[in-house]
Structures are given as C-alpha cells and as structure tokens.
C-alpha cells in the first residue's frame, strides 16, 4: 500500500495534468513521457522536452466493462476507450457521464478530474483523468 502511494505521487503530473514530452529531433509527442524517443534513440538523448497535453481527443475503440476489478465493480457497466489525444499519443481511459450505448468510435472527448480509486476506507484517495463526451461535440 505504501508503495502504491509513492508510485501514485510520482505520477501526479501525468494523472492530473497530462504532462508528456516531445522529441525535439522528430517532434513526436509521448504520453506518458519517455526517457528517449524510440524512433530517434541516441539522437533524442537529452532532447526530450516536457509538454502538457490538452486532454482532448477522439475515441478510436472502446469496450463496455460488465465485470469490473474490485475498485470499479460498483460502476459497471462502464465504457473504457482507447483515445487518440489531439497531440498524437493513444491512451486508455474510462468514459463517464455517458450511457455505454452512446459511446461511438470517432466521438470527441475531453478530460475531466475524477476519483480513480482508494485504498479502502482508511487509505489514500487517488485522483486523475477520465473522459467526457466533448461539450462541443454533437456526434
């Protein structure tokens, strides 16, 4: 449990604010951030620059979870999607405030700040991003 708290704490910039990085040699964006660009390898060493991503993206694929892991079983059924962020990286994220039937491939989404899980009743509470259908998206 203590280990979980430390790992979560290290990941706060990513979980709260989409802190990724960009390779200044080929301009590819990474999230989560990488030590080196897998395309430019040694050329990218020391040239990875931090960049905050917008949290806006598009649903590439999704599934509806009917049997969730322990911390999520009260939320079933809920949609989890692979989302292509506007800056390029693909990530997995839960879609909230949306009926599973309303999720569509190509749907524009934006991030929202939610509780992700907690270590029981006495442990730490972990926050981070989930996704909502974009307010400006009528699709």
């Amino acid at each position: 449990m203590k280990e979980g708290v430390a790992r979560f704490w290290r990941e706060i910039p990513q979980r709260y604010n989409f802190l990724g990085n960009v390779c200044s040699s080929c301009d590819r964006v990474f999230f989560p951030p990488r030590e080196a660009c897998p395309f430019c390898r040694r050329k990218s060493m020391g040239k990875m620059k931090e960049q905050y991503l917008s949290g806006h993206g598009e649903v590439i694929s999704y599934t509806v979870i009917h049997v969730g892991p322990e911390d999520f079983e009260e939320q079933v059924p809920y949609p989890v999607a692979i989302i292509q962020l506007d800056e390029g990286p693909r990530i997995t994220g839960q879609i909230v405030d949306c009926d599973p039937d309303d999720v569509k491939i190509g749907m524009k989404v934006e991030s929202t700040f939610r509780k992700i899980q907690q270590d029981g009743c006495s442990g730490a509470i972990y926050y981070g991003y989930k996704f909502l259908k974009s307010h400006n998206s009528n699709k």
Binding site: E74, Q75, V96, D97, R114, K115, I125, Y127, K130
Partner: peptide
Amino acid sequence: SIDEDTATISV
C-alpha cells in the same frame, strides 16, 4: 457520481 467528491468538484 461514485467518482466525484469535494476535491473533484473544486478542481
């Protein structure tokens, strides 16, 4: 929602 609290509403 189950995943909302005073911290998420404040943010």
